[in-house]
Design a binder for these strands. Structure first.
Length: 488
RNA sequence: GGCGCGUUCGUCUAGAGGCCUAGGACACCGCCCUUUCAAGGCGGAGAUCGCGGGUUCGAAUCCCGCACGCGCUACCA
C-alpha cells in the first residue's frame, strides 16, 4: 500500500449522530492526522425509508463539536465526489453489471414472502438462515425475460469453498468458513445498492486505504473481501473498533440513555471533555496518561493501542473529566458559559437580561463546584428567588438543635445589621459573620449550615460570605428574619 | 441454533515469559485543608488476571478445552 493514508467516516442520515459513531469518527480522524493523510466524510443514504431530514446537518455539527474536520465530503467537495451515495447510483449499477458479466452476480426474483418462509423453515430445521441460491440456476435467457416484467434484486455469488481470512488491525487474523456464507443482495428492487456494494464501490473510488468501523461489521468481512476479489481490486485494511456498551453490556442504543452526540452538548458537556472521554474508550497511550487534548490525541494515536474488548460508556467518568476541563477554563471563558446557561436555565419569571455584574461576580464561585453546566442555574437561582423550605432543614446539619439555630440567626442578624449599607461588601460581611464564633463560642463550621439554609434554601452551595454580600443587605437580613420566624 | 469476537480492581485500562507481592485513572472509604459543598493534598480498601488443563526453572502474558458475555445471522446500515 503506497501513497497517503485515507480513511473515511460513513454514517447514515437516519437521525441524530450516534455517540458511538462519533467515537468511530474520532478514531478515524486521529488515525489520519497521526499519519498525515486525508479524512473523508461520506453519507450512506441508500435506505430511502430510513432517511431523516436534518440528519446530515446534525452529523456535521456533531463532528465539528469535537473539532473533527474532513478533507473531502458532501459540503467541501473533493476529487472523488459526489460524497452522497444516492448521487452515485450509476456507479453501483456499473459495478453490479460488471459482476454479473463476470458471473459473480445474478438477478434474483424470489419474493420477500418466499424469503421469509425460507428463513422460517431453516430456523425450524435448526439450519443457519440464508438464501438458498434458487435463482442462481436461472438461465440467462429466462433471467433476461423475467427482468422485463418482474422486479428483482441482484445477488452476489459467494464462493462457498474454503475459508476467508483477513487481518483485522486490532485483533489479528480472523477466519470464516465460506460454506456458511450465502448469496447476499447487492442491488435492491428499488435500484439502490445495499451497504456492501456501495461501500465496495465508494471505498475503491475514493482510494480508501483503511476502513475503521465498529465491530458489528466484523462478520460481514468475508462478503467484502470476496467482493474486492471478484472485482480484482486490492482491498483496504480493516480495523474493527470495540463496541461501546451500556450498563448491561449491550451495544449502546436508545434504551441505554442519551445516545445522540449533541445531546451531550445540550446537557453541558465540554467538547474537550467528550473528546478526552471518547479517546480512552478502547484506546490508551500508556500506563498513566488520563488527560489528552485533541492536538495530542491526533498526533500520537495508533491502531495497535486499540484494545479488542467492548467498553462501558461510563457517564461518571465523563462527569469527572468535564469538571476537570471546566476548572481548566480561563475565567472569562467560564464566565461566558455561565452567562449563557443562566440565561437559558433560570426560570422564565426571572427578568432578562440578567445583571451582568452579578454573573461576573458569581462565575468564579461556581467554577470548581460544577461538573456539568446544567448544575449552574440550580446553584445560582437563590439570588433571584428563594424557594420555600421546611424549618427542619435549618437544623438538619446541627442535630436538630433548634435552640442553636435560633441563637445563630439572632447573632447573625445583629452582626449584619451592624454593617452599614455603605460598608456592605464581602470583607465586612465576612468579618461580621466570623465574629459569630466569639458570640456563640463555637467554630464557624458548627453552625454555618444554618446560615446557608437561610440564605440559599439548602445547607450547601456556593461560598456564603460572597453570596451574602452579593445578595445585598436588605434581602440578606430579610431572609435571616424569615428563617428565624420559621423556628417560631 | 450457527458463525465470529471478547473475558485483568465496580468502571476505563497498563501489561506482549521473570521488572507483577499486577501499575494508573474514575468511583468508593478515611485524614488534612476549609465558610457548607466542592476543589486540592495525603492515605486506604479494591483484581487468586473467567474456569480447567498443559508448555516452561518460571505464565496475566504461549497452547488446548470449557464457561459466560456480546456481535452478526434483512431487499438496515
Amino acid at each position: 500500500m503506497t501513497g497517503p493514508v485515507r480513511t473515511r467516516f460513513a454514517p447514515s442520515p437516519t437521525g441524530e449522530l450516534h455517540i458511538g459513531g462519533l467515537r468511530t469518527a474520532l478514531f478515524g480522524w486521529a488515525f489520519v492526522q497521526a499519519n498525515g493523510g486525508e479524512f473523508v466524510l461520506r453519507i450512506e443514504d441508500t435506505d430511502r425509508s430510513r432517511y431523516v431530514e436534518g440528519s446530515v446537518e446534525n452529523i456535521y455539527e456533531g463532528l465539528r463539536w469535537l473539532g473533527i474536520e474532513w478533507n473531502e465530503g458532501p459540503d467541501v467537495g473533493g476529487p472523488h465526489g459526489p460524497y452522497v451515495q444516492s448521487e452515485r447510483l450509476d456507479k453501483y449499477h456499473a459495478v453490479a453489471d460488471e459482476l454479473r458479466a463476470r458471473g459473480r452476480a445474478y438477478r434474483c426474483y424470489c419474493t420477500s414472502e418466499r424469503l421469509a418462509q425460507l428463513r422460517k423453515d431453516q430456523q425450524k430445521d435448526g439450519l443457519a438462515p440464508g438464501y438458498d441460491g434458487r435463482c442462481r440456476r436461472l438461465s440467462d435467457d429466462e433471467a433476461e425475460e423475467r427482468a422485463r416484467s418482474e422486479p428483482f434484486v441482484v445477488r452476489f455469488r459467494m464462493d462457498r469453498t474454503g475459508v476467508t481470512t483477513f487481518p483485522d488491525l486490532i485483533r489479528g487474523d480472523v477466519t470464516f468458513q465460506n460454506s456458511l456464507q450465502d448469496d447476499f443482495v447487492i442491488l435492491k428492487t428499488d435500484g439502490f445498492p445495499t451497504y456492501h456494494l456501495a461501500m465496495l464501490v465508494d471505498d475503491h473510488d475514493m482510494e480508501i486505504t483503511h476502513v475503521i468501523r465498529a465491530e458489528e461489521w466484523l462478520a460481514s468481512g468475508p462478503r467484502h473481501l470476496q467482493l474486492y476479489e471478484a472485482m480484482g481490486w486490492e482491498p483496504p485494511r480493516f480495523a474493527h473498533l470495540p463496541l461501546l456498551v451500556d450498563r448491561d453490556g449491550r451495544k449502546l442504543s436508545k434504551r441505554s440513555g442519551d445516545v445522540a452526540a449533541l445531546d451531550y452538548r445540550e446537557n453541558g458537556y465540554l467538547p474537550e471533555a467528550m473528546l478526552n472521554f471518547l479517546a480512552f474508550l478502547g484506546w490508551s497511550l500508556d500506563d498513566h496518561t488520563t488527560h489528552i487534548t485533541a492536538e495530542e490525541f491526533s498526533r500520537v494515536f495508533t491502531l495497535d493501542r486499540v484494545v479488542p474488548n467492548p467498553a462501558f460508556f461510563d457517564v461518571e467518568r465523563l462527569d469527572a473529566l468535564n469538571g476537570h476541563y471546566i476548572r481548566a477554563l480561563a475565567p472569562e471563558a467560564w464566565c461566558e458559559l455561565v452567562a449563557g446557561c443562566l440565561d437559558r436555565d433560570l426560570p422564565a419569571a426571572v427578568p432578562r437580561p440578567l445583571d451582568r455584574d452579578l454573573v461576573t461576580a458569581v462565575a468564579p464561585l461556581l467554577q470548581e463546584r460544577v461538573a456539568r453546566l446544567g448544575e449552574v442555574a440550580g446553584l445560582v437561582r437563590f439570588f433571584f428567588d428563594l424557594a420555600d423550605y421546611p424549618a427542619s432543614l435549618l437544623t438538619e446539619r446541627i442535630n436538630g438543635d433548634t435552640e442553636l439555630a435560633a441563637r445563630t440567626l439572632d447573632a447573625a442578624l445583629a452582626a449584619l445589621e451592624g454593617v452599614t449599607p455603605e460598608a456592605w461588601a464581602p470583607e465586612p460581611v465576612e468579618a461580621a459573620l466570623r465574629s459569630l464564633q466569639d458570640t456563640l463560642d463555637l467554630k464557624l463550621r458548627k453552625f454555618v449550615s444554618v446560615l446557608y439554609v437561610a440564605i440559599m434554601g439548602a445547607p450547601r452551595g456556593i461560598p456564603l460570605f460572597d453570596s451574602v454580600a452579593l445578595l445585598g443587605r436588605d434581602e440578606s437580613i430579610a431572609r435571616l428574619q424569615a428563617a428565624r420566624e420559621k423556628l417560631g
